[in-house]
């Protein structure tokens, strides 16, 4: 059994600690040892995607230093994994640092998004969860287009007892978050979001789930503003729920 090192990600750490706790609960329930390396900070995605490459680089270096000898890294955020997989190798190349590139190449295959970790690395789809609610699943852009995660989150949810899964119309459409895009182009972002909210409400589900809390922060922010009465939950929190406890 590998020791699983949790990269909680900066925004989950501060804004969504329940997701991190749920990841720990699921993995430990499956019999895995989980470690948390306290020195970890951020993958640098916000800086990198907004054009602040110089600031993102030290964060990438820090990440590599912290997790270099980790056996398996679990990340409950698809876009952070996309940052690591898609951009870290190029960042090392641009720095002209062959040994850094080598370290990145060795580390990247051991970094998994949470649902990938369960289905691909650990080979489970039934994690023994119980969640008696109707749930729709937003397929985050980075998860489907960068990680090519396909139906892995859906398969995990399918095995949850009591759940009623409802497919989200136009599910491959972005929610309009896009990091700093949501602020720099707030009007367009809100227009995209309104269509997403419409789709979520169409499903009549109680819960909108995703593998990325950043999308959920966006969708949930609109649902809350509209008092729509639909909750957003990272799939880890659904998978952590059992008959004896968890999110109800």
């Amino acid at each position: 059994m590998p020791v699983i090192s949790l990269f909680i990600t900066c925004y989950n750490d501060m804004l969504f600690p329940e997701t991190g706790k749920a990841v720990v609960r699921v993995l430990e329930r499956l019999g895995h040892a989980v470690e948390f390396r306290r020195q970890q900070t951020c993958c640098g995605q916000m800086h990198y995607n907004t054009g602040y490459q110089r600031d993102a680089f030290p964060m990438m270096l820090h990440f590599v230093k912290v997790f270099r000898d980790a056996e398996t890294v679990c990340v409950p955020s698809a876009s952070c994994v996309a940052m690591i997989r898609d951009h870290f190798p190029k960042m090392a190349d641009r720095a002209g640092d062959a040994s850094l590139r080598k370290a990145v190449d060795e580390l990247v295959p051991r970094v998994f998004e949470f649902s990938e970790l369960l289905t691909d690395r650990l080979g489970v789809t039934d994690v023994g969860a119980f969640f008696p609610h109707s749930v729709t699943l937003h397929t985050s852009c980075h998860a489907i287009r960068s990680l090519h995660i396909g139906d892995k989150p859906w398969r995990l949810l399918e095995h949850v007892r009591g759940i009623r899964l409802v497919e989200l119309p136009r599910r491959d459409q972005c929610c309009g978050f896009g990091g700093t895009f949501a602020i720099k182009n707030a009007d367009v972002s809100a227009a995209i979001l309104s269509e997403k909210v419409e789709s979520v409400l169409d499903t009549q589900a109680e819960v909108c789930a995703a593998v990325d809390n950043s999308c959920l922060m966006h969708i949930g922010g609109a649902l809350s503003r509209q008092k729509a009465g639909v909750r957003c939950l990272h799939i880890a929190e659904i998978l952590a729920s059992t008959e004896s406890g968890g999110v109800q």
Binding site: I8, K21, F36, A182
Partner: peptide, 19 residues
């Protein structure tokens, strides 16, 4: 630009690392 259109849940008292 965010709160013009959406709410943002308040930052919980305890971060994951604190927990």
């Amino acid at each position: 630009g965010w709160t013009d259109f959406r709410d943002l849940a308040a930052i919980p008292k305890e971060s994951f690392r604190d927990w």
